[in-house]
């Protein structure tokens, strides 16, 4: 019995050791980012770096916000992400509702199409879309990014909202329809309020998608005032002679905050969405 308890304690210790090791490695880059961002230059560029800043300072943040284009990048990212989100939520609501409530020709085909287009290689899309945006005169505008991101967010959002609408009983809308509401009124006034959690999920998903996108932002935006955070940050390294890692890490940390907050809420639904039906059997 005592031996049994000892093996159990040993096992618990092993589990903790494993969990701590994993967490340390997985968190390290993030912690190192924060640590570097709080260091004065002479602590960043030293042969014997310290884990924790000796003289913590916010200079990097101050310089970043006053002497670089970072505030512009940040504003651009917010603008693009917010409009993308609004567009995706509205369009996906109608599409998801249609797939959920109506039985019509081609319904299954649309469902499959929506799953398949998610898997297209981004580099194959970026080439013709670049040409298309050029022809439309949209190159180097935020609108080009909003159109692209809004569309990329649609498949998952539509699929997710369809699933959500499926769980809402039809009785309420039906009685509203009998009372003389139009479909669109019933959708707006009855179904959408009930689907609020689903709408929030889809909104956050679209926001993060736009917030973290890199390839299209790199291809479509060509000038400093148009750049979004990811590209701006990645290109900051080349700007002045010595790479000011302190400032870059400060920028990286700020860029992480919205994504981390949103994702923490969102991850449960994302896992469900991508693997729906898989866990059942």
């Amino acid at each position: 019995m005592i031996g049994n308890r000892r093996t159990k304690r040993l096992k618990t210790a092993g589990v903790y050791l494993g969990l701590i090791a994993f967490s340390a490695v997985l968190l390290f880059p993030f912690l190192w980012m924060i640590s570097t961002s709080l260091k004065p230059d002479h602590e960043v560029f030293t042969q014997v770096p310290r884990w924790i800043p000796q003289e913590p300072t916010l200079d990097n943040y101050r310089n970043l916000l006053t002497r670089t284009s970072y505030p512009t990048y940040f504003r651009n990212s917010i603008l693009v992400s917010v409009i993308t989100t609004l567009a995706a939520v509205v369009i996906a609501s109608f599409a998801g509702y249609s797939l959920s409530r109506f039985r019509f020709r081609g319904r299954r085909g649309v469902g499959i199409l929506i799953l398949v287009v998610q898997m297209f290689p981004a580099v194959l899309l970026v080439i013709p879309l670049f040409t298309l945006m050029q022809q439309l005169g949209l190159l180097n505008t935020h609108l080009s990014l909003i159109i692209a991101y809004g569309t990329f967010a649609l498949p998952f959002s539509t699929w997710m909202l369809k699933g959500y609408f499926d769980t809402i009983p039809t009785a309420l809308e039906e009685s509203a329809l009998i009372d003389g509401c139009t479909r669109t009124q019933a959708l707006r006034q009855i179904v959408l309020p009930l689907a609020a959690p689903g709408l929030v999920t889809v909104a956050l998903f679209s926001f993060v998608l736009a917030w973290q996108e890199y390839l299209f932002a790199l291809a479509f935006t060509r000038t400093e005032p148009m750049r979004t955070l990811t590209v701006g940050l990645a290109l900051m390294q080349g700007q002045h002679g010595r790479i000011s890692w302190g400032e870059i890490m400060a920028g990286a940390f700020i860029a992480c905050i919205p994504a981390v907050l949103i994702f923490t809420f969102l991850q449960r639904y994302l896992v469900q969405g991508f693997t729906q039906g898989a866990v059942k059997g």
Partner: peptide, 27 residues
């Protein structure tokens, strides 16, 4: 805690790793 690598935008994480891998002053 272990979710962090997933929730940090990949482009941002890449920049952080570039600093970790830096030849001089890299950790």
């Amino acid at each position: 805690l272990i979710l962090v690598p997933w929730v940090v935008p990949l482009a941002v994480a890449a920049v952080a790793w570039k600093w970790i891998y830096a030849e001089y002053y890299g950790i």
